[in-house]
């Protein structure tokens, strides 16, 4: 981003001055760039914009696959949006989503930060072990879900062997209304803390040494160093990493599909999952499209916030 900014400035001011650059060449260059860009924009439009438009149009019909007459029926275009306002299960799903997203993002930032700060000491042992922290993140999410299903199934879980040995009678959290969401949160945090960790590590690697060294010479303790120098430096990074995770957390699917199926009752049913059930189990396509539009709107707003935050962040660093 910084580079681009600088280049833009160079483009604007000094290009013509550089050897061999005529306005004609400049025009040719712009044409060439558009030529390169055109296929991407065209294909992106076809594979993402068109479907979104189709989704929008569908959201104004009561389309239900089991009832062909409902296709292209625009007699009551807002019916889905009205239903949406009174659908308690949907509202509950937004609430579940909010709880899941906020708690997992906070936990992932926390764990990611702690592990990154530790690993940043870069002892040989740590450099060797570093890769092992990446494992949860690169595993296929469906495998992660199955792994946790194993851990949460008393018949086969090593944890429950231990509980049995200790004589504890522990319920499995995935069927317990007050613990099911926690079970998902634990699994999700395990899966994604490595993501925040590597982002923080990358930022730490670029941290200027001078300030730290100066403080060290002044006799600051390791805690003081972390609190007064490292953390303020990481503020922007934490924000961005958190926002990325926040948006991704809206996509949580395999964990819920495998672990709880949205239950017990609806305590772990997030919006994404609710839409899936409505559209692909009961083929209420029109209604699902309307709910999806609402979700998309929320994501666009969040994405916009990210872009602002990222550009803002780099401004601050400049």
């Amino acid at each position: 981003m910084e580079n681009r900014r600088r280049d833009v400035a160079v483009n604007a001011v000094g290009h013509a001055a550089k050897a061999g650059k005529t306005p004609a060449f400049e025009r040719q260059r712009q044409r060439f760039f558009w030529l390169l860009l055109a296929p991407v924009l065209a294909i992106l439009a076809v594979v993402t914009l068109l479907p979104t438009l189709y989704l929008l149009v569908t959201s104004f019909t009561p389309l239900n696959l089991a009832n062909p007459a409902t296709a292209w029926d625009f007699s009551d275009p807002l019916v889905n949006y009205r239903t949406l306002l009174t659908d308690d299960r949907l509202h509950n799903s937004f609430w579940v989503q909010a709880k899941l997203s906020v708690v997992t993002v906070v936990l992932q930032l926390l764990f990611g930060l702690v592990v990154a700060l530790l690993l940043n000491m870069r002892t040989p042992l740590m450099n060797a072990l570093r890769t092992s922290f990446l494992v949860p993140m690169v595993l296929p999410p469906i495998v992660v879900a199955i792994i946790w299903k194993v851990l949460y199934s008393p018949d086969i879980s090593p944890a429950w062997w231990l509980f049995q040995l200790l004589g504890w009678n522990v319920q499995t959290p995935i069927t317990d209304a007050s613990w099911a969401l926690t079970a998902i949160i634990v699994a999700d945090t395990w899966e994604w803390f490595p993501f925040t960790m590597i982002i923080i590590l990358a930022a730490l690697a670029m941290m200027p040494e001078e300030q730290r060294e100066a403080a060290e010479v002044d006799g600051a303790s390791i805690w003081q160093l972390t609190w007064y120098i490292t953390l303020p430096y990481l503020k922007g990074t934490l924000l961005v990493a958190g926002l990325f995770r926040l948006i991704d957390s809206i996509k949580t699917f395999p964990l819920i599909y495998i672990l709880t199926d949205g239950g017990p009752g609806s305590v772990t049913e997030v919006s994404n999952y609710y839409i899936f059930v409505q559209s692909f189990s009961f083929s209420y396509i029109g209604y699902s499209a309307a709910v999806t539009m609402v979700l998309l709107a929320m994501i666009v707003v969040l994405s916009w916030v990210i872009i602002r935050a990222v550009s803002g962040g780099s401004n601050a660093q400049e």
Binding site: T52, L55, K251, S279, L295, L296
Partner: peptide, 9 residues
């Protein structure tokens, strides 16, 4: 975008 947004269309 969540996959479900594309999956339906």
């Amino acid at each position: 975008a969540p996959p479900v947004a594309f999956a339906i269309p």
